[in-house]
Design a binder for these strands. Structure first.
Length: 491
RNA sequence: GGCGACGUGGCCAAGUGGCUAAGGCGCUGGAUUGCAAAUCCAUGAUCCCGGGUUCGAAUCCCGGCGUCGCCUCCA
């Protein structure tokens, strides 16, 4: 029952053993808050969330840091254009850059909650709140000769000073043709050196620094915040595949040169980029979805979560609306199974005498084994499908139904995409109501269901079928049972 | 150009040397039903192509075709 994960650093699947037994420290490259988060961002964060949940399920005490990048990334292209993405957003939206950051941070948090993240498990530090910590590292790197100053206050990291640069990503420095596609900044000693601190009088986000008022380079924030919250060395660092190079490579260089400890990170995980309708997702193509886009189409957070998680994180995934719908149908089957168990437990449906202990143990085992295997969630979901099929075949006792429901809750906590436990109640008329107790349509639908029962008793099939169709159009499935009718919500 | 990934029934997707190739969605048929729905059962795969290694390959090796990713901001 050992967790195994693929470590980008070794390019192998390794047995997971935290640096400190029982305690796991993870850092997740979080959102850049200059625009609405999209499903691609969340695929990566969901990988991190799943790993965190699984390690907790396996008994580890897990600390998760997810940074908020609220300072514009300084890139070579941005130097040419004169403003970074944060500033561009500020200009576009006629807001202060800090206001832009807070606005999209709030949107990110709201979307994350909708997707089932339990944010109490995360510490979410903002880059702009950690300028001193960044400066401490920059200062240290200057003093140890790994960084150098240029001009009025720019500071660059010297790649030449770190022999292992490129080890994580497998990039050979000689292959990186300097100046091929990026503008050569003359002031650098080596075109591949990257900025730790930049000065620019026109920049709207600036802080005082010993070497000149300015703003931090892109990579330094993660080195600073991971060190502050997790220490010089920690267990897991995650991000999208694009972060591998240069971002994570630069982090390793900065952190290891500053702390003189290695490895900076024991396990690196990178999530493959999402595609949409067979194409690379890109804002320029307009083929990306925000969470709100999908909610507007009528999908629920848990359905979006499931759709983004079903494909293994290192496999290319093609996101389609059909894909979400497929998952929705699967979830409905799971929910129907749980609803029946609930009715049995509550005495609303005739209980049987079957015990389910063996089935529950077998499927729980298979479920966990799937996740142990580098988060092979497809195998785990197959175990859930098998669980549903097996339970549907049986006629569980009240105790068995109760135990099965408990397992479903357990599995739901484990991965967060099975959906909530259904509800059921016996209405005044005796018809079972499987919708929310507060649903405003409850009274009307129950009345229609009762009218249909009357029509059926009178063998007025046309009237009965018409009423059933109306009920279905309202989003409920009318089910005839030996004990009378029942209304279940349709996803 | 450098590095890398993937190609499994209509669709999605497990499986990386050995029982009858998971599971889901969909389709069709059966049981059930007044008819349905749900449920159960049944039906469906030359595992991209061509070689090779092996007693044995979807799984390893070589070649090809195709799709895609990173190398530049992007999760």
């Amino acid at each position: 029952m050992t967790v195994k994960i693929y470590n980008t650093a070794s390019r192998k699947i390794e047995e997971f053993e935290p640096l400190e037994s029982g305690k796991v420290r993870m850092y997740h490259c979080g959102p850049t808050v200059y625009s609405s988060p999209h499903i691609g961002n969340f695929r990566s964060f969901l990988m991190a969330d799943l790993l965190g949940r699984h390690l907790r399920a396996r008994g580890h005490d897990v600390t998760q840091i997810m940074n908020i990048t609220d300072v514009g990334h300084l890139t070579e292209d941005d130097i040419e254009q004169g403003e970074d993405k944060m500033l561009a957003a500020a200009r576009r939206e006629k807001l202060d850059p800090f206001e832009v950051a807070r606005k999209y941070e709030e949107e990110f948090v709201a979307s994350a909650k909708i997707l089932g993240f339990d944010l109490r498990n995360y510490v979410m530090p903002r880059a702009t709140d950690h300028i001193p910590e960044m400066q401490e590292i920059i200062q240290g790197l200057l003093e140890s000769g790994h960084a150098y100053r240029v001009g009025d206050g720019d500071v660059y990291f010297s790649i030449e000073s770190f022999g292992r640069f490129g080890e994580l990503s497998g990039k050979v420095l000689e292959d990186l043709e300097s100046g091929a596609r990026v503008a050569v900044v003359d002031e650098k000693k080596d075109p591949r050196d990257f900025a730790l601190w930049k000065t620019d009088a026109k920049h709207l986000m600036q802080w005082d620094a010993p070497w000149g008022r300015g703003f931090p380079g892109w990579h330094i924030e993660c080195s600073a915040m991971s060190r502050k919250y997790l220490g010089d060395q920690f267990d897991v660092h995650t991000g999208g595949e694009d972060n591998l190079f240069p971002h994570h490579e630069c982090e390793v260089a900065q952190s290891e040169c500053f702390t003189h400890k290695r490895p900076f990170v024991k396990y690196w995980l990178h999530c493959r980029h999402l595609r949409v309708n067979g194409e690379k997702m890109a804002k320029s193509k307009g083929n990306f979805f925000t969470i709100q886009d999908l909610l507007d189409k009528g999908f629920k957070g848990e359905e979006i979560r499931l759709a983004l998680m079903t494909v293994h994180y290192r496999k290319p995934m093609n996101f389609t609306l059909e894909g979400i719908e497929e998952g929705r149908a699967w979830m409905e089957r799971v929910r129907d199974c749980r609803a029946r168990l609930l009715r049995i437990r509550e005495g609303l449906e005739t209980a049987g005498t079957d015990s389910v202990g063996g089935v529950l143990a077998e499927k729980r085992e298979a479920f966990g084994a799937g996740l142990d295997d580098d988060l092979n969630i497809a195998a785990s979901l197959a175990a859930v499908s098998g669980l549903v099929t097996d339970l549907n075949k049986l006629s569980p006792s009240v105790e068995a139904a109760s135990a099965a429901l408990a397992l479903f809750r357990d599995l739901e906590d484990w991965i967060g995409c099975l959906g909530a436990e259904p509800v059921v109640e016996k209405s005044e008329s005796g018809i079972l109501w499987g919708g929310e107790p507060t649903d405003p349509r409850r009274a009307d639908l129950l009345t229609q269901a009762a009218a249909r029962e009357a029509a059926r008793a009178a063998k007025d099939w046309a009237q009965a079928d018409r009423l059933r169709d109306e009920i279905q159009a309202a989003g409920f499935r009318l089910v005839d049972t030996p004990d009378g009718p029942r209304l279940d919500p349709i996803s």
